[in-house]
């Protein structure tokens, strides 16, 4: 049998300088940290840059924005850009206030109703036994494979035939049921031990009572996440309102796709040329509420996103 040569560790040991090795490791660790923090800082700057750019651009004068020399902070702060954008309808014709009211109304109603329906459905699928439950659940999950555009088409025809175009109803009703959130909540409900259900029953609680008094409080974090994500989804909805409603009945996001000009001459000579600074002011106003929401509900939003993985 061939002899396997072992590396001679023992012999090397006396030459091993502990102090030197420790120092080497320390330097290596510092170098690594410098590298990692530089990389992360660079990425963080890139992640934040568009927001910074959007804010400073919205506060610049158009002349400053257009000059070849880059300024990282506006020379004169133009709050007036916001005034112009707010007082003047964009080229789309609808005002910010109108669209904000639309968005809050539609977002609020569809979020509340949507969450109630999600809770009821998820509870039935998780806790109740009825014939055809598994079939229903399978079909519901199956629809998640199908791109939403396929239903948008028919819904467009349905809405036209029902005479629901240019109403709030059509913005709310088709999107009340979210199969994914139902699935998410059902899984959450399933995690609650069955013994709780049994003892609640013995105490004479009905299914509805059990749902409201036990299940909902226990799954509150998930419910908050779903509520927030649903509302953010409404805030960001663009395609459907654009397709189905005229400007008066659209949502806040539809507002920023249009150009903004100073045709009343509030900033200088009147012209119908689209101005970038005004557009950035509009973009800021649409983005800012989401940031405020994020600051207050960071935990729930991040948890919800990591669980659901859908945008709105």
């Amino acid at each position: 049998m061939e002899e396997v040569k072992q590396p001679n560790i023992v012999q090397e040991a006396p030459h091993f300088d502990v102090e030197k090795e420790r120092k080497r490791q320390k330097v290596g660790k510092i170098l690594k940290n410098v590298f990692v923090y530089t990389f992360l800082t660079f990425c963080a700057i890139l992640a934040f840059l568009p927001f910074y750019w959007m804010i400073i651009s919205s506060l610049k004068t158009e002349a400053e924005y257009r000059q070849p020399k880059l300024t990282l902070f506006p020379e004169t702060i133009m709050w007036k850009n916001y005034e112009v954008v707010l007082t003047q309808a964009s080229t789309s014709g609808a005002s910010f206030a109108q669209l904000l009211v639309n968005t809050l109304l539609v977002g609020g109603v569809s979020t509340i109703l949507g969450v109630v329906i999600t809770i009821l459905t998820a509870y039935a699928l998780a806790r109740m036994n009825f014939h055809g439950k598994n079939l229903l659940f399978t079909i519901m999950l199956g629809t998640m494979m199908i791109p939403g555009e396929m239903y948008t088409l028919t819904n467009y025809i349905t809405a036209t035939q029902l005479n629901w175009r240019d109403t709030y109803t059509i913005l709310i009703v088709p999107f009340l049921v979210s199969v994914y959130y139902t699935y998410l909540l059902r899984n959450n409900f399933m995690q609650i031990p069955n013994s709780l259900y049994q003892s609640a029953k013995v105490d004479g609680l009905s299914d509805m009572g059990y749902l409201v008094k036990v299940m909902v409080p226990l799954t509150a974090p998930t419910l908050i996440s779903i509520t927030l994500l649903k509302f953010i989804g409404s805030w960001n909805s663009y395609i459907w309102p654009q397709l189905i409603n005229n400007q008066r009945w659209q949502m806040i996001t539809n507002w920023v796709t249009k150009g903004f000009n100073d045709n009343k001459g509030l900033l200088g000579p009147a012209s119908s040329e689209p101005l970038t600074t005004l557009k950035m002011a509009a973009v800021c106003m649409v983005s800012l509420p989401l940031f405020i929401l994020f600051i207050f509900c960071r935990k729930y939003i991040m948890r919800g996103v990591s669980k659901s993985g859908t945008k709105g």
């Binding site: 009821l120 014939h131 079909i139 239903y151 028919t154 819904n155 009340l176």
Partner: peptide
Amino acid sequence: KAEQGWLFVTPALILLAVFTFYPIVNA
């Protein structure tokens, strides 16, 4: 009592039928 679950899923079912199931078949 046994089929009470259907009561809970009815709102979702109606909405899904009109705005999801039917449109898929229709497409």
